[in-house]
Design a protein around this nucleic acid. Structure first.
Lengths: 360, 360
DNA sequence: ACGCTCTCTGCAATCGTTTACATCAAAAAT
DNA sequence: ATTTTTGATGTAAACGATTGCAGAGAGCGT
């Protein structure tokens, strides 16, 4: 297996290597036709490593995600990879939601890739790792609070939570709970904030007992839902902040024989395969994960072409509510009960005193 | 942002670049301590491209899969990536089950990667693409029939199908159907063969009407199940050859109001998240997809270290039956009916004549 | 004291490209 | 007919590492 180089092609055609190189990069050359045929004949392929060395680029980008087997990240990666086209190679790294592995990955990737699409686990500081990496990074779905200069592609998380709350409220719910993700992750925080804000806007107000901060895992969702059901006065509607926790929460509901939606209404963030197979079909907040990945890749590619641009780009992926069967009006008993709550609620807001809310 | 090279380190320490290089590759050097501190101080990182050029390797492998958003492939990739450790970078490519994109990917990857883990869509010939690629390839889950020299990591597909049939048979089913994947794909073919073999072994014999060859997609599974239900004498038990078709088949069942398992028993190949959330919990043939990916990566790494070895390695990932709630005994009406079938069946086998089976 | 081995060192070639620069012939402008 | 412009070409120097080779001390046996 003789490895054929540009020199072989050049001597075979009878020109210098420079000419071949120029042909390869689209320049005008006299012997174009002959070069083409010789390349074909010898099956010449440019040596990528040599090209990378000379050009200082690798035509490769990294996609760093917490867990590729989470359907959302899988779709994200798929969209990104598809958008990269043939010109760019995508290397993927799984961090298992481990901050240490994240900085490790960044260090390892240095010099191997031209840039990265990064889904960090936490919003906490990554500063050293990032500056050492020294290449463009597009943050997806999560970002680092202190670093404004990086491009981001986020979902409209707050809006998603609002849509859920508004839908619950329009059906008459007032005892609305959230199973939230970690507040030091972007989607966790933003969805929780959106939830509170929507509750405030609709004059219902957030009940601290109805805010369970969990961890975006299935086990966490299971525990959180049980915690809600154990309350003296359980909520009549529950919003779960991501797909994995939705699985867990639904399992808890099932295990305890609580029926959806007759006993409790439910909305999850992020649609999932099989959401139509289970009974009832689950109402969800949805967004186009593939589109989000594609947008991130486009942003990164743009940045690679415009390294010196000072402006940072921040895209927001829209969300929408998919109404299915897991939301209905509260049970009568709860309705009466919620009536009382409502009254109490309006009293407190009359006094513009939300201390009572916290103690409630 | 001054890019620091080995030369900078060398001059700072006061030795030649060769010494630094030797230190980097673990050789004994006098100034080890000082070199270490200077590297730290200047934050020197070896230039990967230069190293690749010299060594002729890229420390990168490709993972080529039909669809990363299929949970099975996601798990496969995850296992492979994890097994690669820090020494190897994994580039993933989605082919969308498109043969053309497969050969394209191989061509594109030439020179960029040291080897590949490849899940081809079809068993048909890829010969030219493969030989031009000129680097080790480990075939996973699927392989190319005519190429025996490549390493493979397959699941025990035939055994999986057998387990399903045996379980159905042990519950008294005789009208057993398969929704098969394409017969020109390895898992499709092997599972269908295992199905037939198990049926023959148990003296039931395969009914051609009960073998629907579909395409491993959800839509395909949906259509196939409908086709089975439209039969004058529908099967009492159905085995679906992959997870996507399982989704589709279950949807069809649901849409037509056919209850599982009271009306029809069901087993799917490959477990899936949420298999416990839907009612009934689905009985499946399972295998460890992550382990399969990890094994593939190990095989590839071994091959990269032993390029000249003539022996090709073929690993088989075990499968097991996870009994849940989707299989029970056939309905009484069907039992009576199947009794007749059984009698007919035993007659034909008495005659040791399986021609009739084909015509049945 | 001499030669021998052993260990570490620097020199310089090398990997396969790209590209600034100089060159040169042909075409265009005078 | 001469000068200027144009455009393709070849020469050679990079890019940043690795490595064969030869040399230089140090340690050791005789």
């Amino acid at each position: 297996m003789p490895v054929v180089t540009i020199t072989d092609v050049a001597s075979r055609v009878g020109v210098s290597v420079a000419t071949i190189s120029r042909f390869l990069s689209g320049g005008n050359v006299r012997e174009e036709k002959k070069i083409r045929s010789v390349i074909q004949e010898l099956n010449y392929r440019p040596n990528i490593a040599a090209r990378n060395l000379k050009s200082g680029r690798s035509a490769t980008v990294a996609i760093i995600v917490p867990d590729i087997s989470n359907p959302f990240f899988a779709a994200l990666v798929r969209g990104a990879e598809k958008a990269s086209g043939d010109s760019l190679m995508a290397a993927i790294v799984n961090t298992d939601s481990n901050s240490e592995r994240e900085i490790n990955a960044l260090a390892n990737l240095y010099g191997r890739v031209d840039g990265a699409i990064f889904v960090p686990t936490k919003e906490s500081d990554h500063k050293n790792g990032l500056s050492h990496f020294g290449r463009p990074i597009v943050f997806v779905d999560r970002y680092l609070q202190k670093e404004k200069k990086y491009d981001t592609v986020l979902a409209d998380n707050a809006r998603g939570a609002e849509l859920a709350v508004e839908h619950f409220a329009s059906e008459g719910h007032t005892k609305i709970a959230i199973i939230s993700g970690p507040l030091d992750s972007t989607p966790g925080r933003q969805r929780e904030e959106g939830f509170r804000k929507a509750l405030d806007n609709s004059k219902i107000g957030a009940n601290p007992n109805y805010v369970i901060v969990s961890d975006f895992t299935q086990a966490g969702g299971y525990a959180a839902m049980n915690q809600l059901l154990d309350l003296a006065e359980p909520p009549t509607a529950v919003f779960s902040s991501n797909n994995l926790m939705t699985y867990g929460a639904l399992n808890a509901l099932k295990d305890r024989g609580v029926r959806v939606p007759s006993d409790i209404s439910f909305i999850g963030f992020d649609d999932f395969e099989l959401s139509t197979l289970i009974s009832p079909k689950i109402t969800v907040i949805n967004r186009d994960a593939e589109a989000q990945g594609a947008e991130a890749m486009r942003a990164l590619m743009w940045r690679l072409e415009n390294m010196d641009s000072k402006i940072s780009k921040h895209s927001v992926i829209p969300v929408n509510l998919i109404k299915r069967e897991s939301v209905t009006i509260p049970r009568t008993w709860d309705l009466q009960n919620s009536h009382k709550v409502k009254e109490r609620q309006s009293q407190t807001s009359d006094h513009s005193n939300n201390k009572e809310k916290v103690n409630e």
